[in-house]
Amino acid sequence: MRTGGAQALGQGSGVMVGPRHLLTVSHVIQWNNDGTAGWVRFTPSYFDGSAPFGVAWAVMTYSKYKVVGPTVDFIEGMYDYVCCVLEHPIGNLTGWMGAKGYTDGWDGGAYWSHIGYPGDLTGGNRPTYQGGIPLDGYWWEFDSHEAMSHYADAWPGQSGGPFFGWWNGESWPSVVATQSSQNSSENNASGGQDLVDLILKARADHP
Rank of each mutant, 00 (worst) to 15 (best):
W139N: 05
A99N: 08
L121K: 15
G54E: 06
S184L: 08
G105F: 12
V175Q: 00
T178S: 05
G169A: 08
A99Y: 06
G108V: 04
G77T: 04
M97N: 07
G77L: 02
H114K: 12
P162L: 01
Y111S: 11
N187C: 07
G165N: 14
N168W: 10
F163N: 06
R126N: 06
G119H: 12
K66G: 03
G109D: 05
Y151Q: 13
T178I: 03
H145A: 15
A51Y: 09
Y79M: 02
Y151K: 10
D48A: 13
G69K: 05
G131K: 10
G95Y: 00
M78G: 06
Y81H: 03
Q130N: 08
L135N: 04
G116F: 12
W139G: 04
S50G: 01
K100C: 03
V175Y: 01
K100L: 11
P118Q: 12
G165T: 15
W112S: 03
G91I: 00
F74P: 02
V85E: 07
T94W: 00
V82W: 03
T103K: 09
S181A: 15
P52N: 13
V176Y: 15
M78L: 06
S184D: 13
L86Q: 02
V68M: 09
S180N: 08
V72P: 03
Y151C: 12
G123F: 06
N92D: 03
G123P: 11
G124A: 04
V82E: 03
I133V: 13
S174M: 02
F163P: 02
F74A: 14
Y65W: 13
G131V: 06
C84K: 02
W57S: 14
K66E: 04
D48R: 14
F142N: 10
H150A: 04
T61S: 04
L93H: 04
